[in-house]
Design a protein around this nucleic acid. Structure first.
Length: 157
DNA sequence: GCCAACGTTGGC
DNA sequence: GCCAACGTTGGC
């Protein structure tokens, strides 16, 4: 299977790219996704080695700040069964979980963040899901071309 | 299965 | 903080 590329959104107030780097192995389970389209990507499509653009939303400036990679394919999101968690889902059957995670590991920080504002002015990324109005998916596919262009803009080492 | 009401996301 | 977009829910 050819490598795929993704973009994952996070609010840095909740979980930031810095937070990811501070974790053991710089790796986390990408939990809390509660959207069926995103769930299907996590469960069915993402493969070990796939590369991820890491995007900070709802912050000034909104920007892609670096890259990560998938290190474990989809498995059930344990927060859906944790009554203390804000992601608890009483309707998710334990024998047939509704929500999934993948593990994501830090790869590299861009020399400069690539802002949403800037991307909107770049014809090279026309059609990219992130820059469409109402592009709310927190896990979205990215074309190899867009991935290459954005990492180049960011000055990835 | 339709669709209005409602809730959430996330850019502005 | 506002509100457009859009996903989900639930009455019929």
């Amino acid at each position: 299977m050819p490598k795929r590329y993704w973009l994952m959104k996070t609010e840095p107030n909740v979980f930031s790219f810095d937070d990811l780097q501070k974790l053991p192995n710089k790796t986390t389970a990408w939990d809390g996704v509660r959207n069926y389209k995103a769930r299907s990507f996590l469960r069915d499509a993402m493969q070990v080695g796939d590369e991820v653009l890491f995007y900070h939303s709802r912050v000034e400036p909104m920007a892609i700040v670096g890259t990560a990679r998938v290190t474990r394919t989809g498995y059930p999101d344990k927060t859906q069964f944790d009554k203390q968690s804000k992601y608890y889902d009483a309707d998710s059957p334990p024998d047939k979980p509704r929500w999934f995670v993948v593990d994501v590991q830090y790869v590299s920080t861009f020399k400069r963040p690539v802002t949403l504002r800037e991307l909107k002015e770049r014809p090279e990324v026309d059609g990219m899901m992130l820059i469409k109005r109402g592009a709310r998916l927190s896990v979205q596919p990215v074309s190899a071309e867009h991935f290459a262009f954005i990492t180049k803009l960011g000055g990835k080492a």
